[in-house]
């Protein structure tokens, strides 16, 4: 019996994941097209590594820039949406296990969620 319920939950979560991937790749594609329209003729250099500008890696600077039409910031928003997709999946599973009153797995998936949030928000 528990198998069937698991499968329904998984089906729903599978759809959520797919929606997340579609949304994020759509945003990324818009950013890429804008970038190539405006900067297509510039010469990129990826041989030497020099961590990208803070404007493109801190959320509170990214979002306003994306809304102002900065193509690279729009791509980064797409990337962040993509990173958030598996996190959403784990969060949904915490809820699903809670509905099944499976306390052990509420704790297990809750711990995974905490590790994910810690790494995304704080770890260096």
């Amino acid at each position: 019996m528990i198998e069937l319920r698991d499968k329904q939950v998984e089906m729903f979560i599978g759809q959520v994941l797919r929606a997340g991937v579609l949304l994020s790749s759509f945003v990324t594609l818009i950013g890429l097209v804008l970038y190539l329209l405006h900067h297509g003729a510039s010469i990129p250099n990826y041989h030497a590594f020099h961590s990208i500008s803070p404007m493109l890696r801190t959320v509170h600077e990214l979002i306003p820039n994306a809304f102002h039409g900065d193509s690279l910031a729009i791509i980064q928003v797409g990337v962040l949406l993509l990173i958030a997709t598996p996190v959403a999946r784990v969060a949904f599973l915490v809820g699903a296990f809670a509905l099944e009153r499976d306390h052990m797995y509420v704790a297990v998936s809750g711990l995974v969620l905490v590790i994910l949030l810690f790494s995304i928000l704080f770890a260096r």
């Binding site: 950013g31 990826y46 961590s51 990208i52 980064q76 990337v79 996190v87 994910l116 995304i120 260096r124």
Partner: peptide, 17 residues
């Protein structure tokens, strides 16, 4: 996702690439 967030904040994820 667990390591991508760290790479992102370190500036290892270049949007144009």
């Amino acid at each position: 996702a667990a390591s991508a967030g760290i790479y992102f904040r370190r500036g290892y994820i270049d949007p144009a690439l």
